[in-house]
Design a protein around this nucleic acid. Structure first.
Lengths: 320, 320
DNA sequence: CTGAAAGCGCTTACAG
DNA sequence: CTGAAAGCGCTTACAG
């Protein structure tokens, strides 16, 4: 910038004005400065700018795993919204490890991100307090975090699971298994609650031997064991996309409704009936809420719940 | 830092030494400073550090679309390697638009990233030259860019396609269709070349009416038209994961080998035979090469080609 | 082992 | 409309 100022024969401040499109520069002078910028190939140093201004025009995104289609769709949506607002995205995968989540968040804060979108791996977010005090804005997505004063965007987990299970009941099933993710995960617990709710509403008993909670690596064995037992389930409700896929991999094809839509759900035989949420919508909503706050939006913390949608494709309409 | 220095009763430089684990601080003093840091909740301002040091410990990643599983696996691998080297990743999706690629890259350069990993959307990378001169390191991944002096990591596109098509020929097919992505894309052209090579090696004629190049939105119609024509193909080779999925969606199940592995390829009936590349390996190799350069690794530009692997699952072993 | 001074490249606040 | 000075929070280079 100093070189540009010298080349154009003006003061530093004038170059700064031109670079930032600030008003109050005569056209002639602006022209002269622009020419010097062009000639020298000058580009503003963002680090210096950040140091002075405080805002980095960067947000941090912490998800579980970018390689998981659910989270990569969230990523894409967040990225798109950020771009619309002239921001960039630093992202990182926590791998469901609360310590890693914390580390990533704090690293992002050291880089002075303006805001954070966090898919909480843990439930304790005390560590965020000093950062929030320092002015960082945060939004929890997909799951609530441990701080009530932070905006949160979820999907209707209970309602979605309830709808899916009710659908199986309507098609005549009485013994319906629930294969969910680890109970440590909020969404897994909520969906289990929706399952129980649907059974209760239909006056059906909840047989605990038909419920398994755990990572998808254990889904296959659990399903096989249930189907081999006396009085096996005639239908299965799977608690997320990875678990649905793991269940399908077993080769068994009981009646099935899965939480989360996934690629090729319609290409299998039969097509897989799902309760679809929109990860893109989740990401977009969280990002828009964040930028709303960053541009001064005030008011109490919001808790937004996005609807789900049942998509019948065949597997959920099989008779017992 | 000033506050910490005051609180500990030492000079700024001493605090800096402690914060950066520099040698030459007496244990007693280090202790005193550490206590003050703890007490005041001090955290180093990275922007100021960057401004002074030059290095940002951040790299930029430009891919086509994070929401595409192929690229999100690359992302994850790059992120992991970056973390191992204490770096963060700014990422962006170009959407196959060369202008968007350029914009993202230059924005990343404005933020003074140390290095770039680019999946080129365009073939003209003149715009990178000034940045390279300014000291940014770059690696092209998945496709070569327009600069021979830049390190490049690819997979063996020609060899992979050749192997896949030869596999179909070995199973008795004589009329094999090729459904590839747009000819504007390097990998699509290379794979088409591999297809032609395999046919030529088997002494089979290349029937141009069996070749379609274009985005996956046109795959379904193209395949249906081919199968409805007189003398239809008995087998299909699909040029990437998205196109394979689009072909499967038609419901038709000719013999098929697809480039790229994908989730559920083994759960379909029949299982889908694929030529698998390892997106994770691509990302990891590119990132490791980048960090090697960043830590001073010299020598001429490398061009690394990763092998592919044929995975027979049924669809590629169907007879004509 | 410890520190005082200068400077990285900008923007802020103020003066003219 | 234009500019000179101070300062953002660090690190570098040098002195003691």
């Amino acid at each position: 910038m100093k070189d540009v100022a010298a080349a154009a024969g003006v003061a530093l401040k004038t170059v700064s004005r031109v670079v930032n499109d600030e008003p109050g520069v005569s056209p002639a002078m602006a022209e002269r400065v622009a020419a010097a910028i062009e000639r020298l190939g000058y580009r503003r140093n963002e680090s210096a700018r950040v140091l002075r201004r405080g805002r980095t025009a960067t947000i941090g995104l912490v998800i579980e795993d970018v390689a998981d289609p659910f989270y990569s769709e969230i990523s894409r949506a967040v990225e798109d919204v950020a771009l619309e607002h002239g921001s960039l995205v630093l992202s990182g995968s926590s791998g469901e490890d609360p310590r890693r989540e914390r580390e990533l968040v704090l690293t992002f804060c050291d880089r002075r991100v303006d805001g954070l979108i966090i898919v909480p791996a843990g439930s304790d977010h005390e560590y965020l307090l000093p950062e929030l005090d320092a002015g960082v804005r945060a939004v929890f997505a997909d799951r609530p975090g441990g701080l009530a004063e932070v905006d949160t965007v979820l999907c209707d987990n209970v309602g979605g699971a309830r709808t899916g299970v009710a659908h199986l009941i309507r098609h005549g099933h009485r013994r319906i298994a629930f294969l969910g993710d680890s109970e440590a995960i909020f969404t897994a617990r909520e969906r289990l609650a929706g399952y129980r709710l649907a059974l209760a509403e239909a006056g059906l008993p909840a047989d605990e031997s038909l419920i398994t909670m755990g990572p998808e690596s254990r889904t296959g064995a659990a399903l096989r064991a249930m189907l081999a037992a006396p009085d096996p389930p005639t239908a299965v409700f799977t608690g997320n996309g990875r678990i649905t896929v793991a269940a399908l991999r077993t080769g068994h094809r009981p009646a099935l409704v899965g939480f989360d839509d996934f690629e090729l759900a319609d290409a299998l035989t039969p097509g897989v009936t799902v309760v679809a949420q929109t990860p893109g919508g989740l990401g977009r909503t969280a990002a828009e809420l964040l930028f709303h706050r960053l541009s001064g939006g005030s008011g109490p913390a919001e808790r937004i719940e996005l609807p789900t949608r049942l998509i019948p494709r065949g597997s959920g309409e099989l008779p017992p």
